[in-house]
Amino acid sequence: MTGLQASLLELIRRTSAEIPDDVQRTILVALEREKAGTIAASAMELIQRNIELARKKSQPICQDTGSVLFYVDCPVGFDQIAFAETAREAVRQATRKGYLRQNSVDALTGKNYGTNIGPGAPTFHFHAHPGADVHVRLMLKGGGCENVGAQYSLPDEALGADRDLAGCRKAILDAVLQAQGKGCGPGVLGVCIGGDRATGYEFSKQQLLRTLDDRNPVPELDALEQDILNTANDLGIGPMGFGGKTTLLGVKIGTANRVPASYFVSISYMCWAYRRLGVTLDAQGHLQDWLY
């Protein structure tokens, strides 16, 4: 096994079994907030026990180990083909070890080959950057939360949502209402305003690479993030949709330019089992540092 493969296998193992620190801190705050003795509080207690147990046993936090999404920032001239080949081998190995469920199915035949390898699986997003380091971020995004993602095309007459920030707010809060507990709340929203349909969703997922405690540098978006978070938590949907005070743990919103004719609001929902970690690698693929 090469240094790179060992690094990626360790990245997969930890991402599947360990919740990032920023998410853990936010979950503990949410646990404190729920009223003792309610089923919402019991759900949060069980979630916290689960986080601790998964870390201790080095086993998946959630059995749905999700779509395997690699985001790679690499220097110009980096051999992306070789990286992808090694990453696929690491995914195969992680599946054999039970870090990942046999979770990838042929879309046409329904056949599960048990390897998590196939067209689009895993998925790679390569971005060239000026530095010499390689940063690999990994997101494991489960199907339950992916299914409650939504894309709105404004204006939306039924929602009374115009092409402005107030309209975006209505669309995003409608997505929260429709999701209820089905995406394993309390969740986190990644949102993109603008773009085409495909890049809108792609950018919305990239928002989920931000840490929960960061603040949006764009004042309008920062205000919208805080507003959506507070309003959603006033709706009484609560953990798992049981009713309660924590419906969302965070909201992250970005923008992409749009053509004049289109105005999409794309929303990716991340469950509480927010599996996202990252590493910095040296030129030989050895693990230098953990991101997050």
């Binding site: 979630i47 689960n50 147990l53 798992m240």
Partner: peptide, 30 residues
């Protein structure tokens, strides 16, 4: 309603696997 995502706490409650059906046809998760 079980707590979604709580795969470890719930797996700890499983004391034995008695049998499996349709493993070939539907694959392990199904």
């Amino acid at each position: 309603h079980a707590v979604g995502g709580a795969a470890q706490v719930l797996a700890e409650c499983i004391t034995a696997v008695r049998n499996v059906y349709f493993l070939e046809e539907f694959g392990s998760p199904e």
